[in-house]
C-alpha cells in the first residue's frame, strides 16, 4: 500500500481564552481528537459551520499552528513544528490558499515579487530562473506574463485568487490546503476557479484539503467529505455516500439549509405560499 499524502492521528487543539487582570481564564477545546488519512491525488472537503474548528485543523495541516496533542504526518514523514525541526523541504510540500484574496496579498508588492518570494527564500535559483518560473506559473493559472509587473489592486477578486494559487504552487507542493477559496467570489468566477483547481490537480497530481461550507461546491470538487461539529468529526465518508444519505443529525441540518435551485422545489414553494 502506498504512503498516504496526509495522516492525522488524534489531533487536539486547545485555546486559552480570557484570564485578564480579574477574569478567570478558560480553555476552549477547538479540536477534540481528529483522525484522518488522505490518499495522494484525492480531494478531501471539510464542512462545518463557523466555529466548528475546520480552519483550526486547516492551519495545523498547513504547519502554521502546532496541535496541542496528536501527530501529523505528511507523505509518511512525522511533523513536529513545536520542536522547530521542520525542514524547508517538509514545509515546501504543503502550501495554503486563503479565503479572502483581498487580504492575503501584500498591496505593496508587485505580483511578480509575490510569486517569486517563496523561490527566493527556499531555493538557490538565480533571479532570471525565478522570474521565468513565475511567468510560466502565471500562464498556468490563466493569467499572462504581462501581469508580472502589476500590483494586486489592479486585479479583480477572481484574478487575485489565481495569483494566490500561483504563489502556492510555485514551490511544487504535494498538498494544497484551501480555506474557503471561492466563498468570497461571484458565482461565475467561482466556476472558473473550481475548473482551474481541477485542471491543476490533474496536471500536478495535487492532493487538496478543501475547507468549505458550501455543499454545492463540495459536491462538485470533493472525493471524500468530512463533516465537523464542535471540534469533532461527525461523519467522514465518500462524497457519493454522504450525498446519497447523510447520517448524522448535523449533516442533515446542513443539507436541509442549503438552498435548492431546481424547478420542482420552486414549484412546491410557490404552491405552499399560495395555499398560505
Amino acid at each position: 500500500m502506498s504512503v498516504p499524502a496526509l495522516e492525522v492521528r488524534g489531533v487536539t487543539r486547545d485555546y486559552h481564552v480570557g484570564g485578564g487582570l480579574f477574569g478567570r481564564s478558560r480553555v476552549v477545546h477547538a479540536l477534540k481528537g481528529i483522525d484522518l488519512t488522505l490518499e495522494r491525488g484525492k480531494t478531501l472537503a471539510i464542512v462545518g459551520e463557523s466555529g466548528c474548528g475546520k480552519s483550526t485543523l486547516a492551519r495545523i495541516i498547513a504547519m502554521i499552528d502546532p496541535p496541542t496533542s496528536g501527530t501529523l504526518a505528511i507523505d509518511g514523514m512525522p511533523i513536529d513544528i513545536t520542536a522547530g525541526r521542520v525542514t524547508a523541504e517538509q514545509r515546501r510540500k504543503v502550501q495554503m490558499v486563503f479565503q479572502n484574496p483581498y487580504g492575503s496579498l501584500n498591496p505593496r508588492q508587485k505580483v511578480g515579487n509575490i510569486i517569486t518570494e517563496p523561490l527566493v527564500l527556499n531555493t538557490t535559483k538565480s533571479a532570471a530562473e525565478c522570474r521565468q518560473l513565475a511567468m510560466d506559473m502565471l500562464v498556468k493559472v490563466g493569467l499572462s506574463a504581462v501581469h508580472y509587473n502589476r500590483y494586486p489592486h489592479m486585479f479583480s477578486g477572481g484574478q487575485r485568487q489565481r495569483i494566490a494559487i500561483a504563489r502556492a504552487l510555485i514551490l511544487n507542493p504535494q498538498l494544497l490546503v484551501l480555506d474557503e477559496p471561492v466563498s468570497a467570489l461571484d458565482l461565475s468566477v467561482q466556476a472558473q476557479i473550481l475548473n482551474l483547481l481541477r485542471d491543476l490537480q490533474d496536471e500536478f497530481g495535487l492532493t487538496y484539503v478543501f475547507v468549505s461550507h458550501d455543499l454545492s461546491v463540495v459536491r462538485y470538487i470533493a472525493d471524500e467529505v468530512m463533516v465537523m461539529y464542535y471540534g469533532e468529526v461527525v461523519e467522514h465518508r465518500s462524497r457519493d455516500a454522504i450525498f446519497a444519505g447523510p447520517e448524522h443529525s448535523y449533516t442533515k441540518t446542513l443539507f436541509a439549509a442549503t438552498p435548492r435551485a431546481d424547478v420542482d422545489s420552486i414549484r412546491a414553494r410557490l404552491a405552499a405560499k399560495a395555499a398560505g
Partner: peptide
C-alpha cells in the same frame, strides 16, 4: 454555473 447543475467534468462559465 451553479455547481449542482454541473453535468460534465467542467463547470460552464459566463
Amino acid at each position: 454555473a451553479l455547481p449542482e447543475n454541473a453535468t460534465g467534468v467542467r463547470l460552464p462559465t459566463v
